[in-house]
Design a protein around this nucleic acid. Structure first.
Lengths: 138, 138
DNA sequence: AGAATTAGTCAAGCTGCTTGACCAAATAGT
DNA sequence: ACTATTTGGTCAAGCAGCTTGACTAATTCT
């Protein structure tokens, strides 16, 4: 229960921080999309797999993010069917704001632990966590 | 990120365990309703506040749980407007199954820590967690 | 007693997701 | 090389879970 509540607090903190930085019209779910698109970008299909939703839903979300100026559709360099989704500068700024908000939310918590405790906790969480499956989806 | 992933793993574990115990037609969100109803029960309004949804949505969820045999509507002992939602024996069995599944999911994790580490972790999570706000909702 | 509040439901509507059908590009099978 | 299958993406329709809005009945306030 504590674990779930803490996760909720983190999400709320990130969401509030992003909103406070002036990025509007974003739901927490978008953060998981940003995480996948950040860097080299991804296709709609890859995004769908990452979010564990259908291609249609992922495409729809991409439309929304494009329309809001966070994402850009580019032709795929090697596959003429596919289109590469890439973060715009605004999208990247938003991910930086989200990272900062997460860091800020966790700061008082991290400070209350010794580095050794923190490392142990991190390792313990890593053991329980299923890699990739980040979004709670319920 | 690890925190979110671990929370997801826990929810998945509980959901799978409950399903494996033969309780069908339940979504993880129902677990949070059960947690509130367990014990003395609650009114629709109290359930709505706990889940942070509207009374209408809570009432609808209650209908669904009644229809599936997990919850019962009783007249409220002191307020003739209100109706008390109470878990049926099947509903209580389900919460026990959920508790067991949670315990089982966390077992390998708890075993890898010393009791002192576990206590420290619990305290740290409690400091970050916002009381009551359990459901991530995104 | 009358006014305002509170518990709950009915109805309609929206949003984010799903399934199903389809086209165009790429890959595999001979 | 040329068909056959697979793969990336979109269009369309539908569904589930939630919302806002309007209302009734019981309760509480003054």
């Amino acid at each position: 229960m504590l674990l779930l509540s803490a996760a909720r607090a983190l999400v709320d903190g990130i969401d509030a921080g992003v909103r406070a930085s002036g990025f509007t019209g974003l739901r927490p779910a978008h953060g998981y999309a940003f995480a996948r698109l950040s860097g080299a970008g991804a296709t709609v299909t890859e995004l769908a797999e990452h979010l564990e939703i259908t291609k249609q839903a992922a495409s729809q979300m991409a439309d929304e993010l494009v329309q809001k100026g966070y994402v850009e559709r580019r032709p795929h360099p090697t596959d003429a069917r596919a289109r590469l989704l890439v973060l715009t500068p605004q999208g990247e700024a938003c991910t930086r704001a989200a990272d900062a908000a997460a860091e800020q939310t966790l700061r008082p918590w991290a400070e209350s632990l010794t580095p050794a405790e923190l490392a142990g906790l991190r390792a313990a969480l890593a053991r329980l966590a299923t890699p990739g499956r980040i979004r709670p989806t319920w």
